[in-house]
Amino acid sequence: MNTAVFANTLPTTLRLDQCRKGATVRVTGLIEQPLFGSQDERVSLRLKELGFLPGAPLKVIGFGLLGSDPLAVQVNGTKFALRRAEAAKICVEPIDNPSL
């Protein structure tokens, strides 16, 4: 399967794990996460299946105890908890006019 890797080449790209609470952003693509090793493709697939697709609006709604890991996000009206390792796979861009 082809994982979108275009974000690797853009050092300025924002990733979901860098977003603050309350941030509304739009997914631009998924990148590799070496931590997941050979599972990485499956993780990407599952993220997409859950709706983390390019263009999807996304909002960071909160964090777990002790620091900002895991983080809770809302995508397409459904809320998910992601650890930082998963969130770091998701490239986003800020949106000014949130329509969540």
């Binding site: 599972q39 859950l50 895991p70 809320k79 908890a81 650890r83 390792a85 998963e86």
Partner: peptide, 12 residues
């Protein structure tokens, strides 16, 4: 062994 991430749905 490999580990699958958390990816937990927070139901309404």
């Amino acid at each position: 062994r490999e580990e699958f991430p958390l990816l937990l749905e927070l139901p309404t």
